[in-house]
Design a protein around this nucleic acid. Structure first.
Lengths: 177, 177
DNA sequence: GTCTATAATTTGATAGAC
DNA sequence: GTCTATCAAATTATAGAC
């Protein structure tokens, strides 16, 4: 993977998280990284290819950034997970990329859809190991994705905390009990 | 408001909820309702106009479909709210329109963004009257929007129930107490 | 109100020179 | 790897006939 390919993926990730998959063009990305759109196609032949690659990198990076539930107290484990979402929306104003792509799922190339499903499945598996319960994993995943929507839709980043703070505390307490 | 304008708004609402604001064209809508794209522009001069009108109609209709919290037990009131979201995703596979637009907020015309904020604010007000607590209103709003994302992203409509069933029960019980 | 026609721009994508 | 040049199709939008 070349430096330039990585820079293009960075730009694509940022634009997907801000505008959605149909909210940017190869020319936008080219301008972001300082080359021409034909050169972007050299690295990623089609937009579907690009979507698959950026979604896959996002999933791997995100999961790799999380603590191992086997070696971390469950309370801390879930709180770290919540803070990863929080900093994206509060510090950068960005959606979770796979939350955005999940909303737009019907309009995505099938290969990209498959990557989104993988992200969700692996996050649910992770949260189940954190929280000890699969239903609770779905609840927390939904709560965090929705808190991002609430923050963006209302124009109030603090909505993320209003939505997640108390519940997250209560649920990790329940999980620890 | 003419019949045709309403049919166009129906088509626009369905396409926004499936594909997002940038996921369809005036020609798509024209084809949906059986006219030409130039005629769509007769009813809605620009895509921003269309976005404002469809978002405003969605907000009014959605709130009008809900029971009055003053004359309805709070448990039942919130459950009806939850079921409105549930049937959209489980029966039709569609996002809440303002959840979709909230995710895409950075790419929307400013007039449309304002309508999304209004939707969120009025829904939070409604939920506060249902649940008796403003934080809990944000929590439930986030949970329901996120449960739609989880269902779409995973390709599993039942994820909506896994995410919302137990928590919703617990929280309306707490609200009733 | 709807049509045909069309303008102006943008988009995803390719060919071929360097 | 990046460029210029270009393409075919699509997009938002307008003008003017019916």
């Amino acid at each position: 993977m070349s430096d330039m390919a990585d820079k293009i993926l960075d730009a694509a990730e940022d634009r997907i998280r801000a505008f959605g998959f149909h909210g940017f063009s190869f020319r936008d990305l080219a301008s972001d990284v300082g080359i021409k759109s034909a050169s972007v196609h050299y690295h990623f032949p089609s937009k579907a290819d690009l979507g698959v690659r950026v979604a896959r990198r996002y999933t791997e990076r995100f999961l790799a950034s999380l603590p191992d539930p086997a070696g971390t107290p469950h309370n801390e484990c879930f709180d770290r997970y919540r803070l990863a979402f929080r900093s994206a929306i509060v510090d950068g104003g960005r959606m979770c990329m796979c939350g955005m792509l999940g909303a737009e799922i019907d309009g995505l190339p099938e290969e990209v859809r498959a990557e989104v499903r993988t992200f969700v499945d692996r996050n649910i598996d992770y949260l189940e190991r954190c929280l000890g319960d699969r239903d609770r994993a779905w609840q927390m995943f939904a709560l965090l994705e929705g808190a991002m929507i609430a923050a963006r839709g209302s124009g109030r980043p603090e909505a993320f905390d209003l939505a997640t703070q108390h519940l997250a505390t209560a649920l990790t307490a329940a999980a620890g009990a």
